[in-house]
Simulated scan of single mutants.
Amino acid sequence: MKLDNTVAAVVTGGASGLGAATARALAAKGVKVAIFDLQKEKGEAVAAEIGGVFCEVNVTSDESVDAGFAKARAAHGQERILVNCAGTGNAIKTASRSKETGEIKHFPMDAFNWIIQINLVGTFRCIAKSAAGMMTLDPCDEFGERGAIVNTASVAAEDGQMGQAAYSASKGGVVGMTLPIARDLMSEGIRVNTILPGIFNTPLLQGAPQNVKDALAASVPFPKRLGMPEEYANLAMCMIETGYFNGEDVRLDGAIRMAPR
């Protein structure tokens, strides 16, 4: 896909981290970018920086996502690009025993469902609604391409650690639905790919003590550092711009394979 100021994009989770880096990379190519996020102050700041539009969106709500797409399309027209970076995590064992009291607890179902609703269902909700919009567009090249979608999973989809049952399930679901969605949309010229990031220097880690970040960096085979959001954005841009890139799930992790804990 050729990127310029005739193309519109939506980036969920675009107020910070991987999403903000991708929004900046798209805008640098002239793309008109709408940011979906709940972080209003940060989202508005990034949107102002790149000449885009901010939409306060909760991806777990049909009404909120519909309103976000309506605002984005009123400002920029129908998007050809969707990048899904909205997500969250938690760390709770499936069942555990207190070392102090011996009390046994299990993973609270509402906490499990919360992660699934944001990371998996929220991603699918945005894909389905964006793809329906992309289908109204004329193809942008001689091969019939109408749009490109990039999702964010995690290396935890393949080697989740202790306490990551919900997170791994949600990200594994994103990986698992990538190919079937690409096949669903193949006759409409809409491509779908997913990135599985490793340990990245995002807001989730920026508040961690330096010794913790150093230990995480040392666990990466090469290069021995945390991933940079710009590197995620580079891969997302490659997936968007390369027309033969479709139905793929790609790890971006410095060759790390996560230990049990």
Results as ranks from 00 to 15, higher is better:
S130C: 13
K93M: 00
D62A: 06
G173Q: 11
A23L: 06
Q161T: 11
N211E: 12
G247W: 08
S64W: 01
G102T: 04
A21S: 04
A9N: 06
A23Y: 12
T60H: 01
T12V: 06
A218D: 15
A70F: 00
R191T: 10
G254N: 12
C126H: 10
D141W: 08
L185Q: 05
S61G: 05
G133S: 11
S168A: 15
A74N: 07
F124L: 08
S98K: 04
L179D: 02
A70D: 06
R251L: 02
D214S: 02
A169V: 05
Y232S: 09
N201D: 13
D110P: 09
Q78K: 10
M135E: 15
N5A: 14
T94H: 04
F143K: 13
G176R: 02
M228W: 12
D253W: 08
G68F: 01
V59M: 01
T202G: 01
K105W: 08
G77L: 08
K71V: 04
T242P: 00
S61Q: 12
S61L: 03
E158G: 05
S98T: 02
A47H: 13
Q210G: 05
I116W: 00
L82D: 10
M109D: 13
L226E: 07
A217H: 10
C238H: 13
L205S: 09
N193R: 09
L3Y: 07
A217Y: 12
I190W: 07
L26V: 06
Y244N: 03
L235P: 07
A27T: 08
W114F: 15
P180A: 02
L82Y: 05
L216G: 02
I256C: 02
R80W: 12
G144A: 03
G243H: 09
I116D: 01
K171C: 05
V83T: 05
P209Q: 05
M162W: 10
P260E: 08
E231H: 03
D66P: 01
A132Q: 15
V121T: 15
T6R: 15
V7G: 04
Y232G: 03
L26F: 14
D66S: 07
A217P: 08
A165E: 01
P139Q: 01
L18Q: 06
A236C: 12
A169K: 03
I104N: 00
G173T: 03
G13W: 01
N151G: 11
G189T: 06
E248M: 11
K29R: 15
E100A: 10
M239Y: 10
P260F: 08
A67R: 03
